[in-house]
């Protein structure tokens, strides 16, 4: 009995070892599904649909885009976590549900449930105020907030968002008493600032057009690198804050997907990213095309998670782990 079992296991082992490269060569042998963690019309949805069209030509299989919005991308990930690790189901999300939300909320997946495939775009966060506002620089804004405690308001597209955490971090560093007002979406925060209801909005590049037209002033980029399209605007790192609120657009597979398949997908997406139609789409969405291969993305996600964990502990942010008894 035992011998038979061992022999069978050995045979199976040989079979798997032999099958793995063969699998990658055959892959993909059937259509690939991509769960998009957001609604149709969202930036990620538009980018994934354009990439998907190109990918069909490269891989020779249909690519089906399935919108699974909810929980800032975590609904799509919890679905993927239940799928088979065969590379036929992928998810397209912003990094947040992979490296930040797991630290704040109880989820039915772990970051380890996923194998990064690649990063294909990156977004920038900025601080904007109305063009009628008196502050010309971010430093002037901070000085004002310091001198006028309990009266300065800033809006973000949600409590616990990276932008919110970034501003809390800055507030603690400078000893500010300023008020966070959460809104459901980035566009809503800009409306509130344009209408003069809120002093500043912190969020993704949806402000770009209003800044160009002079309705809003961009005072700082929350991150480490300046923006190519607004080269004069300083970063918060230059101003002495060590916190990046960047947002990487990534593709992940289920953990346990054979590495040759990951590599093949990585390469195929990389080729699709070079398509002028994709480049134009990303540019029109005011995002940047940015490539990280699966290894570098893995390191990046782990680093961001470590950094975010330290900030949560420093700021004593409410999480589902410390509020529930």
């Amino acid at each position: 009995m035992d011998i038979v079992k061992i022999a069978m296991a050995a045979l199976a082992g040989i079979g798997i070892a032999a099958a793995a490269p063969a699998l990658a060569q055959e892959y993909p042998a059937k259509p690939i599904n991509i769960y998009v963690g957001y609604s149709p019309g969202d930036n990620m949805d538009v980018m994934t649909r354009v990439l998907g069209q190109k990918l069909e030509k490269i891989l020779g299989q249909p690519i089906t885009i399935l919108n699974k919005p909810g929980g800032a991308g975590s609904v799509a990930l919890s679905l993927l976590a239940k799928d088979k690790p065969d590379g036929y189901t992928l998810a397209a999300v912003i990094e947040t549900p992979l490296d930040r939300i797991p630290l704040l909320r109880k989820l039915d997946y772990k970051p380890d449930d996923f194998a990064p495939v690649l990063q294909f775009a990156s977004g920038v966060t900025g601080v904007v105020v109305s063009s009628k506002a008196p502050w010309k620089t971010f430093q002037e804004l901070l000085d004002y907030a310091k001198k006028n405690p309990a009266s300065f308001t800033y809006a973000t597209s949600g409590a616990g968002s990276t932008m919110h955490v970034a501003m809390q971090y800055i507030g603690v560093e400078r000893g500010l008493d300023w008020t966070h007002v959460p809104y459901p979406g980035a566009r809503d925060t800009l409306t509130a600032v344009l209408g003069g209801h809120i002093n500043a909005a912190v969020g993704s590049t949806q402000w770009a057009n209003d800044v160009r037209q002079g309705n809003l002033k961009l005072l700082a980029i929350v991150g480490n690198e300046r923006m190519a399209s607004f080269p004069d605007v300083p970063t918060t790192k230059e101003l002495g804050f060590n916190f990046s609120a960047s947002s990487a657009s990534v593709i992940v597979a289920r953990a346990g997907t054979p590495q040759p398949i990951i590599d093949k997908l990585d390469k195929a997406f990389r080729t699709a990213m070079d398509d002028p139609e994709f480049v134009k789409t990303v540019k029109n969405l005011e995002l940047d095309v940015l490539y990280r291969d699966n290894q570098k993305l893995k390191t990046y996600l782990a680093d961001t998670m470590t950094q975010f964990k330290a900030v949560i502990e420093e700021l004593k942010l409410p999480t589902e782990f410390n509020t529930s008894k």
Binding site: P69, G70, G71, S74, V75, S78, L104, R105, L107, D108, G158, A159, G160, S161, P182, P184, P318, T319, E320, T323
Partner: peptide
């Protein structure tokens, strides 16, 4: 759904689908 100010889920009974 998700509480606006604390960003924590409430009355979702553990269903991730109810976070929104």
């Amino acid at each position: 759904g998700t509480d606006l100010v604390t960003a924590l889920p409430r009355f979702t009974m553990g269903f991730p689908e109810l976070t929104d």
